[in-house]
Structures are given as C-alpha cells and as structure tokens.
C-alpha cells in the first residue's frame, strides 16, 4: 500500500520543481496561470503560478517571461533536457464580470510563450468563469484539475491580489494524463 502523497502548495509568484514519486504540487487558480512542466525522461516536474501585473503591457509580459524562465531554469538545473520538456497550462479564468479580462491575457501569454520557445503543450484548461484547484504529480506529469464551483469567487480574486491560501470547497475532478 502506497503512503499518502506529500502535498506541497504554491501560491502566486512561487514555483517548485520535484522528482519525488510520492509528492504532489497543488495550487488554487483564478485569473492566474500555472504551467506544469515535465521531463518524461527524468521523471522530473515543476509548477509555477503567476499573474501578469498591470494590463499585460511589455513590462507585464516580462514578468510572465521571468516566471516561466524560473521554472525552466529550475528544471534544467535539476538535469532536465530542454528538448524533452512538455507543458500543460491551467487557469486564466474570469472570476468577476466587468473587470478587465486579465485571465485571458495570462492564458494567451502562456500559450504564446510555449509556442515561441518550442515547448510542446500537451493539454490545457484555460479561461471560463470558475476557479480551479490543480494537483500535479511531478514525477509522472499527471495533473488533476478540480473546478471550484461552490466557492465565493471574490475570495479567490482577493487571494490573487494578496497572495494567501484560500479556503475553498471542490467540484468535479478532471484528469490530464501524463
């Protein structure tokens, strides 16, 4: 019988790279985006969690590029090969109507980044009007997504403004296989 997985939670602005088969990395996303990156040849994976500041102008884009660079460099420094990297993207929701759809800009940035950098995107769940919980198994590359439908979306929105761990309930589970 396998031991319960060791859970690591990351918040906005953080990233984590692990190769522990018994570990998962989780995060809660509203309009933020997470890239789950995996090197299948090494059984190594990493996740980041970022939000482009401002209206997504050049300086905001540079912040996003830096968030992606930290994750990629974290993978490469642990022995990953750039030509083996695979990614999955999550988040970029629009939780509150009437505000600028920064979530869409976050998602579009992440998709464009992967395309420009030649990193295959094996799957994504971007956009929508709900928050998500993402649970990533870094060793296998498998991702579970829970749509968070029964929570106060304002709380996730506020948590992305002031990073902290929101207290949420969960909806259905969706699998993104490794």
């Amino acid at each position: 019988m396998n031991a319960a997985p060791v859970k690591h939670h990351i918040i906005q602005g953080e990233y984590l790279v692990l190769d522990d088969e018994n570990a998962v990395i989780s995060t809660i996303l509203g309009s933020c985006v997470s890239a789950c990156m995996h090197d299948p040849g090494l059984g190594l994976g990493g996740m980041n969690h970022f939000l482009l500041p401002g209206e997504g102008g050049r300086e905001g884009l540079q912040y996003g590029a830096y968030a992606m660079e930290l994750l990629i460099n974290g993978m490469l420094s642990r022995g990953a090969r750039r030509d083996r990297l695979q990614a999955k993207l999550f988040g970029g929701g629009r939780l509150l109507r009437g505000l600028t759809d920064i979530g869409r800009k976050n998602g579009e940035f992440a998709e464009r980044f992967l395309k420009d950098e030649g990193i295959p995107c094996l799957g994504s769940s971007l956009g929508g009007d709900h928050a998500r919980r993402i649970i990533f198994s870094p060793a296998s590359g498998r991702v579970r997504q829970q749509k968070l439908v029964d929570i106060d979306q304002n709380r996730v929105f506020e948590s992305e403004s002031k990073p902290k761990r929101p207290n949420v309930s969960s909806g259905d589970i969706e699998l993104f296989g490794g």
């Binding site: 050049r58 590029a65 660079e69 990629i72 464009r112 420009d116 950098e117």
Partner: peptide
C-alpha cells in the same frame, strides 16, 4: 536562451 525575453529586450 529565451526568444520571449530577447524579443522583449529588443522592443525596450
């Protein structure tokens, strides 16, 4: 090594 960062620096 990142095209994205090179492009952003070039634009700046």
């Amino acid at each position: 090594d990142q095209l994205t960062m090179r492009s952003l620096i070039r634009a700046s």
